[in-house]
Computed example of a mutant assay.
Amino acid sequence: MRITVLGGSGAWPVAGGACGGYLVRWADYRLLIDPGFGSLGHLLGHTRAEDVDAVLVSHGHPDHCADINPLLRARTLSTSPPDRLTVAAPHGALDAILALDEPGFLDDSHRLAEFTPGDAFRLGPFQIQSVALPHSVDNAGFRISAGGRHLAYTGDRGPDPRMVDLASGADVLLAEATFPEEVPARHRGNLSSARDAAVEATSAGVGHLVLTHLWPGTAHRRAYEAAVPYFRGPISVAQPTMELDLGSADHAS
Rank of each mutant, 00 (worst) to 15 (best):
P161L: 01
I128Y: 10
E102D: 13
S145N: 01
R84M: 06
A167Y: 00
D108G: 11
A175C: 11
H91D: 11
P125M: 00
F126Y: 02
P82M: 00
L133T: 14
V87C: 07
A167K: 06
H150P: 01
H135G: 03
D165P: 02
L123R: 05
V87A: 09
P90H: 03
R149L: 10
D108N: 12
P82Q: 01
S145Y: 01
D165Q: 15
L100R: 13
D101K: 12
R143C: 09
T154D: 00
G104D: 02
G158S: 10
F142L: 05
V137L: 02
A96H: 14
F142H: 05
D83L: 00
L106E: 02
D107C: 02
H135T: 05
R122V: 08
D165G: 13
S109A: 15
R122C: 08
A132E: 14
R162M: 05
P90T: 11
D171E: 04
A132P: 01
G141H: 03
D171G: 09
L174V: 12
A152T: 02
D156R: 04
V172A: 06
V137T: 15
S168Q: 15
I128T: 09
P125A: 02
R149C: 03
H91M: 08
G118H: 10
P159L: 07
R111G: 05
P103D: 12
F126R: 02
F115C: 04
F121K: 00
R162Y: 07
P82T: 08
P161E: 11
Q129I: 11
R157F: 04
L85T: 01
G147D: 07
F105Y: 14
S168L: 12
A152C: 11
E114T: 15
F126W: 09
G169W: 04
A113F: 07
P159N: 05
G169C: 08
D138I: 15
P103T: 10
H135S: 13
G118C: 07
D95P: 00
I144Y: 08
S168I: 07
